[in-house]
Nucleic acid binder design. Structure first.
Lengths: 213, 213
DNA sequence: TTGCTTGTTATACAAATGAATAATAGTATC
DNA sequence: GATACTATTATTCATTTGTATAACAAGCAA
């Protein structure tokens, strides 16, 4: 051309694959937190990740793949957190159950941000089958952990309770934790720090008819 | 024009305002159930309501207004259902609490469809302030009902429990019902009819330390 | 039947979106 | 420092979407 346009191309940095992927996934979560699933646009995600839209496609073939990745990351951060906290617990079954409840019902697991993400993703379990599958997996994992903890507590106390009944107790404990988690996320301002988890511990104590917890 | 096109205009029927509004609201819900919030397009809503897109705007000035209306209808169908079921209950406080739990944990309140709607709408509490407000109102209403029922039960049994403690019990009962409702909606196939509500009743009995319920 | 109101359809349009392709430059390697 | 690889940017395209406006006809009233 006769007229050379001095278009300055946007400078950039070449990052590692993992760095970019996590960056894009976190940007996706941020979009959802701010404005729901509808706000998670390729362009908006790229903007938050400080990158041009084209790059998103370079790491995730399409939008659904990106959403699934963000979903798994979200679930991993939440469910896994409560379960992994038990790794460093050297107490008995009662102490372990107590820690599990407390971790699940305190920050950072209890946080409006987590609720926003959780609600947004679960609203897609019908629309995006893969999300439905991994959502169910995460749910089963959490429930199994509840059941395992409850069983150990009963075993230690030498209470002879058949498997079916243990399962029912676990379902109730799971439901109680989920429900309190919901209330905490939605109205965290109504609970002073620790009071929610304390209520959870006391309630589970009543549910399982334990003398102490 | 010289060439008269014989375009056949789509025939239609003039319906009452209420009929059209509820029709459009239900079509919106159907969209959301099938494919999440993203599927609730003006065009798709109109298609399901068997109407042309322009008509939607004739009844709802914009999309958010339609979504809010659908949200309120959803909440009304669910929360109100459990509460109104008490109107026809002539039993005492125990019977009323029991009926409340049972209604909340059986069909049609427990249904995958309701969960899909609930999750989709609550994912918008940040994006659409009006939905956030009415969501909180519905939550408060349900929680107050729990608290009222629990208080009456304690009063009948002449257990002297201060208000703060009653509130804590109500929060736990509310959480348990919510959690079980969630589990029921997500995995209704795992519970045979009635077993979920039975578990709810038994669990609340333990929570409140009642001899019978 | 005639005319009128307005619920309803038809059409248009600008903006946003997901996806695809070509061009460029950062950076590792030699 | 030169070269090649590919991460990244720039640009384009076909659809979809929300909103707006004009044209039409259903059904009531006289």
């Amino acid at each position: 051309m006769a007229l050379q346009m001095t278009t300055t191309r946007r400078p950039f940095r070449r990052a590692s694959e993992e760095e970019r992927r996590t960056s894009l996934i976190e940007a996706t979560m941020e979009c959802i937190v701010q404005g729901g699933i509808g706000a998670a646009t390729i362009r908006r995600v790229a903007e938050i990740a400080d990158v041009t839209p084209g790059l998103v496609r370079h790491y995730f073939p399409d939008k659904n793949t990106l959403l699934c990745a963000a979903h798994k990351a979200t679930m991993s951060k939440m469910t896994t957190q409560a379960i992994q906290s038990l790794d460093n617990c050297d107490g008995g079954p009662l102490a372990r159950l107590r820690l599990f409840i407390e971790t699940s019902l305190q920050a950072p697991v209890v946080h409006p941000r987590n609720y926003q993400l959780w609600a947004s993703f679960t609203s897609l379990i019908n629309a995006i089958p893969e999300i439905g599958i991994s959502h169910r997996e995460a749910y089963i994992e959490f429930r199994n952990e509840c059941e395992s903890l409850v069983r150990d507590v009963f075993a230690e106390q030498q209470r002879d309770i058949d498997d079916k009944q243990v399962e029912r107790y676990a379902i109730a404990v799971n439901a109680l934790i989920d429900g309190l988690w919901l209330e905490g996320c939605l109205a965290m301002d109504l609970f002073d720090s620790g009071s929610l988890s304390e209520l959870g511990v006391k309630s589970v104590q009543s549910l399982l008819d334990l003398e102490t917890l």
